[in-house]
Design a protein around this nucleic acid. Structure first.
Lengths: 337, 337
DNA sequence: ATAAGCAGTCGAAGGTGGAGAGTGCCAGAT
DNA sequence: ATCTGGCACTCTCCACCTTCGACTGCTTAT
């Protein structure tokens, strides 16, 4: 649909605009290395590209700016992530060699890494808990009526939830309930544990233990929903790409609503490495932004996703490689543990 | 040192400037309700105030702007927080009536509340763990060499730390170590637990249990340092108070370095409700910002602190009352649990 | 001590006029 | 049939100027 020369010209315009943030004129394009025709010819093609919706003019007699469709073509023809620069590769390598220990700390650091690689905001969504098995359950009495349920998952993640009981309950009873609970759910996944038939299980229990157990199982059922951990880093870097405080404020508002961010990332989770440009994000406030997202795989299962959020005129090639590489290494590192 | 009229004029200038962000001229001040002298008289006093360092002129023939010293005077003469507006009081009341359960969730929500009350960025630093007693310790084998230590504190907080062992260790051995560890530290504070004499305690232990126990105790010692939880909300609101993206970016960079934020708040912790204006924050990047901070008290002990970060031309009265009220209610709510 | 008047200063706003960067189109070259 | 050079035209940007208005500071009168 786009002949070779037009494609080259479009590519040149996008590249140039990403670099300078200024409308690109036919002269610049003609003098660029890849194009060997005169500016007049470029002008004709650019007019055609505008008619087809790839470019736009801020006003007559200004250069052209890529439209979302233009960026989309540009990204598609990149055909996947390139290689990272040497400095960046080195940075990723040392990061993952040095990192160890706490998963949360590591995910948070990963978001910092990603933002430092790309200079855009980085979002890391922690592994889903559904697939992890329960390693241990514990009930701790904090006060006569409040019990804290602590779950340790095989991923190393911890879930806690405080349970308010209807009546004062002795610590011994709580402990008994904990033992029973452990025997029921340890080794299962959170998903399967939450399908347990509460009523049937409670039949054999004493009158004191039963209510505690019932409450705990109820929590278990509700607990694993919407408890995604999100780590956001590098907002200060990204902000520098924009020039209106107003825009910045709106973008920050989106980032503060973590639910929105998570759903943005999860929408594209099954598509693998992918890019959403401007309104493709489905969010009007992000019209000037693009998102590059990739899932990461732990032990063969898609566990979570990472991404960067930057201006539509982002350095897509760098962002794509950075996200791809980091997602890959992150998955591998988490698999080892 | 400042006669009554000059004080009134200074007050009027600060109030007006906070409202409009425009330099304030003598005419405006003279026509304000509190001042009953002509603009010429105001001019004379304003010149004096400038000479004394309370006001500054962006350029000749512009109105005056408060200096840090001017804001300082203004804040000092406010003499403590006023009352919150009815809408705001209502908002605080419903928030604390409805809130319950998870402390982390609650602190995070509190930062949202505070930012929504003030329209500035809100920072909430979670309770220090030093004073909380250990309710339970658990060691969970994640893999033959990795053990996860989970501490439940009386505050409802959880600390976790993964421990890498030198040798593969059976789950039974880990469990034995956990039992022994529990008997040693449950009921103690983290602070006292970390002063335990490791070597003496290990004498009576078997060769298999000892290394696990030693590793766990070592973690315990290091664990409670620098593990403040920080919750930041409302950055998007605050951003709208500034007009240079550059400034915004620098402020966000500070907020991303949580250590810096924590130290800002903790510097003023023992001073009670207090305000740092511009460079008083000790941070050059926050020259255009002010911070209002208050500690909150749980069970008679200063536990943590909350604060808001806004422009130097912030609505100090509203910010002071909001911070004071929320700190108070937060402390009370946490004490009940 | 306060007020009134007045000259002076400076920025903001608006208008003007190139300069420069672009465009579209046409006619001629390849 | 395509490309190119040339040309007229358009529109922004910038520098410059002027006017306007909001101040101030000073001097003088009360």
């Amino acid at each position: 649909m786009l002949d070779e020369r037009k494609a080259t010209i479009l590519r040149a315009v996008v590249t140039e605009y990403i670099e300078t943030a200024q409308p690109v004129g036919s002269g610049h394009v003609a003098s660029s290395a890849e194009v060997n025709v005169s500016s007049a010819t470029v002008r004709n093609d650019m007019a055609a590209l505008e008619a087809e919706g790839y470019l736009a003019q801020p006003h007559t007699s200004a250069g052209r700016i890529p439209t979302e469709k233009g960026y989309r073509f540009f990204v598609d023809q990149l055909g996947g992530p390139g290689k990272l620069g040497v400095t960046e590769s080195q940075q990723v390598r040392t990061f993952f060699n040095r990192t160890h220990g706490e998963m949360e700390q590591m995910l948070s650091d990963t978001s910092r890494l990603l933002s430092s690689l790309t200079h855009y905001a980085a979002v890391v969504v922690g592994p889903q808990h559904e697939v992890a098995t329960i390693k241990s359950v514990q009930l701790v009495s904090l006060s006569p009526r409040i019990v804290l349920a602590v779950l340790v998952l095989s991923s190393g993640a911890i879930e806690k939830h405080s349970i308010e009981l209807a009546a004062d309950t002795d610590e011994l009873v709580v402990n008994a309930a904990a033992v029973r609970l452990s025997s029921l759910v340890v080794g299962q996944t959170l998903a399967s544990a939450s399908t347990l038939d509460t009523d049937a299980l409670l039949l054999g229990e004493g009158n004191d233990v039963a209510p505690v157990l019932r409450a705990a199982l109820a929590e278990l059922r509700g607990e694993h929903r919407h408890d995604d951990q999100v780590f956001i880093g590098g907002t200060s870097d990204m902000v520098a790409s924009f020039d209106a405080v107003r825009t910045v404020s709106e973008i920050l508002r989106i980032l503060e609503q973590q639910l929105v961010v998570v759903s943005l990332l999860e929408d594209v989770l099954d598509r693998g490495l992918s890019v959403a440009i401007g309104r493709e994000t489905g969010n009007e406030a992000l019209a000037d932004c693009s998102i590059v997202v990739a899932p990461y795989v732990v032990d063969g299962e898609t566990a979570g996703s990472i991404g960067v959020l930057g201006p539509t005129r982002m350095h897509y090639d760098q962002a794509l490689s950075a996200v791809a590489v980091v997602a890959n290494r992150l998955g591998r590192t988490l698999s080892e543990g």
